[in-house]
Amino acid sequence: MAGIATNPRAGESHADIPKHLTEPRVIRWILIGAALLFVGLIVVLPLITVLSQAFSKGWEAYLTALKEPDALAALRLTLLTAVIAVPLNSLFGLAAAWAITKFQFRGKNVLVTLIDLPFAVSPVISGLIYVLLFGAQGLLGPWLQEHNIHIIFATPGIVLATMFVTFPFVARELIPFMEAQGVEDEEAAVSLGARGWRVFRKVTLPNIKWGLLYGMILCNARAMGEFGAVSVVSGHIRGETNTLPLHIEILYNEYQFAAAFAVASLLMLLAVVTLIVKSVLESRMSGKRYSA
């Protein structure tokens, strides 16, 4: 899904369209105006709101909100979660894309659909399933308690829920990419006597590295921002199991609106950086496409 939703080729500007094929100037400007209006209303306005609310009490309050121990702890947990979830999902994405694009086997379509499943599952449900599985009343709960292993209401639960939600990102990004490349290069390498790991490292990886990075960046953005799923499994222990989005909710509920938006602006910054990196990668990828 993400593969479509964020097509690497989006944003490539098309060659000039001949005059007789384009619309009259008036219509063009009306359409452009309408498009700008929508983007302004839907996307830009929320951005401005976050910023203006974040700074409504001035710079100092803004910085204080970010330097608060609970905020820092939330930031640490958010980073930790991403550091675990993103590489694991990337590893999975590589394996899945390799199996799916380089080989033919029965049940492939089902597999592809199943990989997409977490996209369509409500985040709330993704949290719920882990509560049902690992909660004290859940299937494995009693055993886990006996062995004093904490999953729910601790970091592992948060990581798991995040992994579920961001599960398909890398795979979805890589599959169309590797499909387009076919298997000739790798087969040639194998016929020249190269072994599996080497083929992957020397032939496949250089070809897909931008796509991989791109998938990881999207995966990371989502991992850091997940709210619904994490909220169900977190337990909301201050300074310990609150991620940044949960910390925002808490501040919001404590009438600390400026602080809530200050922390929100941090996540927004992350989103904007993600988009910038993404568009840089896009131009590299499309550049590569044309040079190839």
């Binding site: 384009t22 452009i32 983007v39 929320p46 709210f227 989005p245 925002i248 909710e249 988009l275």
Partner: peptide
């Protein structure tokens, strides 16, 4: 975005993906 050229087009194009990258809770309160 595909057919016309106008100033700020690249930025608009990038902004389209924002809802994808922005945490939903932030979007909600905003």
């Amino acid at each position: 975005l595909v057919r016309y050229r106008f100033p700020g087009k690249k930025m608009i194009d990038g902004l389209i993906d924002l809802p994808f990258a922005l945490p939903t809770a932030v979007a909600g309160i905003a």
